[in-house]
């Protein structure tokens, strides 16, 4: 009985079984999206597009969620009202700066590591960066809540900044600034690792050719190596953005966890203001899923995250298309 399994697979049988596994994964993904969408439907159907907007005057997202929890198991239709704008805004506000800063740092540092660093440093740097890329986010969150949040709260936020917003929001140290800093630290190593790999795989003859034609080495690096690595840079940015969007635990720990949309009109103080992202809202509220209105809202946040992941990967693909001419694989 077992002997038959030991024999090498026939081609057609291997093809079918591997195909079946691949199809199974695709079916699993589709089923998951469908499941989330079905559960998210009640909250969307109650609000339509105003679901994405800010809360109407006189209420707030926090009050809406409190209503969902208070009405419990037999929630009336009115309990489903939700205005997710503060969460969407908070997600954008912490992700975009983190990805932009991280991308700039990653490109510069990978150029240094690949082109300029002495060989011994390079041999140490690349494994260390890979290691950094795999640090669990909860560790970063812990450092954030134990070190950075008290530091920002006690040393950076001044009394006058606190007083200036005292009738809108409280500044405790946990907020946008700490979240952006940690998120940047979290996603930069991933980008460095990917971009390094792409730069390493640019054939050295290309750059040597450019230098032979009289271009100086820095110019050759920027014009040839970096240009050839552009698709990998886009791929790195997409991957890092996806990780930043989905980051839940760390954001939940250091963001101050308020359903508040930081106000840019407060000047630089807005960097200290608390917020909550879509993913961290799922973490913060998951214990309340016994209330059907709230569980539907959480599924809706999840659906929005899935949708943004789709937009990201399609967007990344479209950006990469015209860059393909001289590409190297990262």
């Amino acid at each position: 009985m077992l002997d038959r399994l030991r024999q090498p697979w026939q081609d057609n049988r291997a093809e079918r079984s591997l195909g079946a596994v691949a199809v199974l994964i695709a079916v699993g993904v589709v089923a998951m999206v469908a499941f989330v969408a079905v559960h998210a439907w009640p909250t969307f159907s109650h609000d339509g597009l105003s679901w994405l907007g800010p809360a109407p005057k006189g209420t707030s997202l926090e009050e809406q969620i409190a209503t969902m929890q208070a009405t419990g198991v037999n929630a009336p239709a009115a309990a489903y009202h939700l205005s997710a704008w503060p969460l969407i805004y908070g997600t954008i506000l912490c992700t975009v700066p983190a990805v932009l800063i991280g991308l700039a740092v990653a490109i510069l540092s990978s150029i240094f590591i690949v082109e300029l660093a002495p060989g011994r440093l390079r041999r140490i740097a690349i494994p260390v960066i890979r290691l950094l890329a795999s640090v669990p986010s909860v560790v970063y969150g812990l450092i954030g809540i134990l070190v950075l949040v008290p530091f920002v709260g006690n040393h950076l936020i001044t009394a006058s900044e606190k007083t200036s917003v005292q009738n809108t929001v409280e500044l405790t140290g946990a907020g946008l600034l700490v979240a952006i800093v940690i998120l940047t630290v979290m996603i930069t190593p991933i980008m460095v690792a990917l971009i390094c790999e792409a730069l390493v795989s640019v054939p050295s003859s290309w750059r040597e050719g450019a230098i032979a034609l009289g271009v100086n080495p820095v110019r050759a690096m920027l014009a040839v190596s970096l240009r050839a690595a552009r698709p990998a840079i886009v791929a790195a940015a997409v991957l890092a953005t996806a990780r930043a969007l989905g980051e839940a635990i760390m954001i939940s720990m250091v963001s101050g966890s308020r359903d508040f949309a930081p106000r840019i009109s407060d000047g630089l103080t807005f960097l200290y203001e608390p917020f909550r992202s879509l993913a961290s809202a799922i973490v913060d509220y998951h214990e309340g899923i016994g209330a059907p209105a709230l569980s539907s809202a959480l599924y809706a946040f999840a659906l929005l995250l899935l949708f943004s992941a789709l937009v990201l990967s399609v967007g990344g693909y479209l950006i990469k298309l015209p860059l393909r001419r001289y590409q190297v694989r990262g």
Partner: peptide, 11 residues
């Protein structure tokens, strides 16, 4: 979780 979570869970 909180009192209301308990109420919802037991219901």
């Amino acid at each position: 979780g909180g009192a209301q979570i308990g109420i919802n869970d037991v219901k």
